[in-house]
């Protein structure tokens, strides 16, 4: 089961604190690896996601248990994950002006 951690989800902060603790005693890459593999966290963090997560307490896709097969697949971006690229194409594909009705309150 996937859990989507969002910016306003305190669990994201907890994961980062955990990562930070590991960094203190290990090399960064090793810490990421350990976190990715550490089943005592009751989460499967995933190496790629851990790498992404190293800098910001933002959305991280995690799984609740170690996956039985193909862990790398679990680290793929979810379909609904939007990045700047997808966002840009959203804006251009629709052909709609985002500006309509928007005016900064001064």
């Amino acid at each position: 089961m996937k859990i989507q951690l969002t910016l306003d989800n305190p669990k994201a902060i907890a994961i980062y604190n955990l990562l930070e603790k590991k960094i203190k005693s290990k090399s960064f890459e090793k810490a990421l690896f350990l976190l990715a593999q550490d089943s005592s966290n009751e989460i499967y963090f995933g190496y790629e996601n851990a790498k992404k997560a190293k800098a910001v307490a933002m959305d991280v896709v995690i799984t609740e248990a170690l996956p039985e097969t193909e862990p790398q697949q679990k680290t793929d971006k979810p379909d609904n994950e939007k990045t700047i690229d997808s966002q840009k194409s959203d804006n251009t594909d629709t052909g709609t002006k985002a500006t309509s009705g928007f005016k900064i309150e001064l």
């Binding site: 992404k52 190293k54 910001v56 933002m58 959305d59 700047i84 966002q87 959203d90």
Partner: peptide, 25 residues
């Protein structure tokens, strides 16, 4: 959605951010 602007945006690579919300750097 969220945006990073100002000088700090030079220091943040968009690839290190993973979010289900649209964002702009």
């Amino acid at each position: 959605q969220f945006v990073f602007v100002g000088g700090i945006s030079y220091y943040i690579d968009k690839n290190i951010i993973s979010s289900s919300k649209p964002f702009f750097i």
